[in-house]
Each structure stands twice: as structure tokens, then as C-alpha cells.
């Protein structure tokens, strides 16, 4: 993932954004200044170059007086980071370069950078044992659906094969068995979206209210989605009813039916978009309480 974006005008830093708290900031800034000096004297054209430092890979390029730097992981796809950095360069040169040259505030740049650089979204799937979380994970990944309950051990972490809203989706499928519940709170840390899966039986839905509280407590900024799974079974409560009980927007699902895949991805996409919008409007509008299913 991209860990930081830095833009220098000559040797002064005009913009920086860190996506993971790294301790080397002061050191890094000094390094960036020397890098910027360096590229002033060495013609690298308009290409994007990269070099490795420690566990990171530093991507850089130059336009006019500006040096653009993206700090990413060595494990990242080079072509993908190149592509993002060049998007950033284009946006910056088009909309912000003149402001920066005249020392004016770069209003709106932060949002643009986020749009371009934020590459990972953690989606946690939470619910009691056997409700269909792992099945949902396989459904999302477009894999063959297992029909037996092979209980998850701990947590299973998998990427979604395609990007959603420009982000890599990392799915955290948490084990529902009670012996693994000790780390639920820890494992959902930093999730932008939490999907709470129920099997739509009254007993299970009532129990799952506890999970809703847990999520609100631990990751108050995350979007919470309820899933009323196993709608093919006769005992299933409707999604609307499940949503009323849980007090969160809830959607119906038959995780063993592949035709639900696109719908589910749309639901996640919507949650990511809403999450972004909410964090931007950062005004204190408190989260709306109980809302029923769509």
C-alpha cells in the first residue's frame, strides 16, 4: 500500500500525507530534500523512478520545480504505484501547481490524494459460528462454495480479486466459535467496513446484537452492514425484521447461491463510498440510529 505522499517545491515540502505512522518522518523529510536536490541536477526526464529503502520502495518523479514522491511497500505492484503517482502528478499540475508557486493554501488537494493513494480497505466479516461467513467470503471471491461447515480457525484473510472504488479490498473472515471470540475486538481494528452475518434465525439475530455493540465500541468510524443469510431456509426472518432487531441496515443473502455475488459487491461498494463521504464531511452529524433494510 502507499504509505505516504510527499510533494516538494524545490527543496521545501509543500504537501505531505502519511497513511501509516512511521517513526522516520524527520529523517525521511531530510532525505526527500536531498533527493529533490539530486533530481534537480540529474535529468530523469518525466519518468517515474524508484529505489528501495529498508522495507519500503520510494517512487519519485519531477515536473518543473516539483518533485513528487510516493512511499510504498516493496511488495506493491510497481506498475500500479507508477500509475497512481502519475495520476497524482497530472491532477496536481493541472489544479494546484499555481497555488503552490504563489504559496496559497492547497484546498482540496488532500481529498484528491486520498482518492488516488488510498489503496486498501479492510472489510471484516463477523458473526457466530456456522452462520455462513466463510461461505460469504468464497462467494465474494467467486470461488466454488463449500457446502459443509469447516469451522474457521482464528481468522482467514483474503483479497477480493477485483478492486472496488479504486481500492484493494482485504477481507478478514473471523472465526465464530467462542474460543476465538477473545480476539474479535482486536481483529476488527482499522476495518472500514464490518459485515455482521446472521443466519436469520431469531435466536442468532438476538445474540448478534452484542456484535453490533462490539463493533460500535471498537471501530466507531466503520460502516456496519447486517446480513440476513440463509434466506432459502424456511425458518429465516426477513432482512427487514433482522435489520429492525440489529438496528443497522441489513440485506438478504443466500451465500450458497452465486447469483447474489454482484449484489453483495454493490453493497460493499456503497458502504465504502458512504464511509469516505462521512469522513470527509467530518461534521459532528451523529450516526443515525436504527434504520431498516433496503
Amino acid at each position: 500500500m502507499i504509505r505516504g505522499i510527499y510533494i516538494l517545491n524545490d527543496t521545501s515540502l509543500v504537501y505531505s500525507k502519511d497513511y501509516s505512522e512511521s517513526e522516520l518522518t524527520a529523517e525521511l523529510v531530510r532525505f526527500l530534500v536531498s533527493l529533490s536536490e539530486f533530481v534537480k541536477h540529474v535529468d530523469i526526464g518525466e519518468d517515474i523512478e524508484h529505489m528501495d529503502i529498508g522495507p519500503w520502495r520510494l517512487f519519485y518523479t519531477k515536473r518543473d520545480r516539483f518533485t513528487f514522491v510516493a512511499l510504498a511497500d516493496k511488495a506493491d505492484d510497481i506498475a500500479q504505484i507508477n500509475e497512481r503517482l502519475s495520476q497524482l502528478v497530472n491532477v496536481f499540475m493541472r489544479e494546484f501547481a499555481n497555488l503552490a508557486l504563489t504559496n496559497q493554501p492547497l484546498v482540496g488537494l488532500d481529498e484528491k490524494v486520498d482518492e488516488i493513494a488510498v489503496t486498501m480497505v479492510k472489510v471484516a466479516i463477523l458473526g457466530y459460528a456456522g452462520v455462513g461467513k466463510t461461505t460469504t467470503l468464497h462467494l465474494l471471491r467467486g470461488e466454488t462454495l463449500p457446502l459443509i461447515h469447516d469451522p474457521t480457525i482464528g481468522v482467514s484473510i483474503k483479497k477480493l480479486p477485483e478492486e472496488v472504488e479504486n481500492a484493494n479490498i482485504v477481507l478478514w473472515d473471523l472465526a465464530g466459535q467462542s474460543r476465538f471470540s477473545i480476539l474479535w475486538a482486536k481483529m476488527i481494528a482499522n476495518a472500514q467496513v464490518v459485515i455482521i452475518v446472521t443466519d436469520s434465525t431469531l435466536e442468532n439475530v438476538l445474540r448478534s446484537k452484542k456484535l453490533v455493540s462490539l463493533v460500535k465500541e471498537e471501530v466507531p468510524d466503520a460502516k456496519i452492514i447486517g446480513i440476513a443469510n440463509k434466506q432459502d431456509l424456511p425458518t429465516a426472518l426477513t432482512a427487514e425484521r433482522v435489520g429492525q432487531i440489529l438496528g443497522i441496515p441489513t440485506y438478504e443473502l443466500v451465500a450458497i447461491d452465486i447469483s447474489y455475488r454482484d449484489r453483495l459487491i454493490q453493497i460493499i461498494r456503497k458502504a465504502i463510498l458512504e464511509g469516505k463521504r462521512e469522513s470527509k464531511s467530518a461534521s459532528g452529524s451523529s450516526s443515525s440510529s436504527a434504520s431498516a433494510s433496503q
Binding site: 486498501m120 476465538f180 477473545i182
Partner: peptide
């Protein structure tokens, strides 16, 4: 927090691990 379990070092380098072991180790310890 994002990418899940990362084996930062292993010795010998040929030693193989799987998700199940990592989970049992991590949960077991906690």
C-alpha cells in the same frame, strides 16, 4: 492490522508455515 499475518523472519528459510499454524500460534498465545 491491514494485511493480517506476516512472517517477518524465518529460519531456516526453507521452513514452511501455513495459515492454520499461524492462527493457532497467535490465538494460543493470546
Amino acid at each position: 492490522e491491514m494485511q493480517g499475518f506476516v512472517v517477518e523472519k524465518r529460519f531456516p528459510s526453507t521452513f514452511s508455515l501455513n495459515e492454520r499454524i499461524l492462527n493457532l500460534v497467535y490465538y494460543g498465545h493470546h
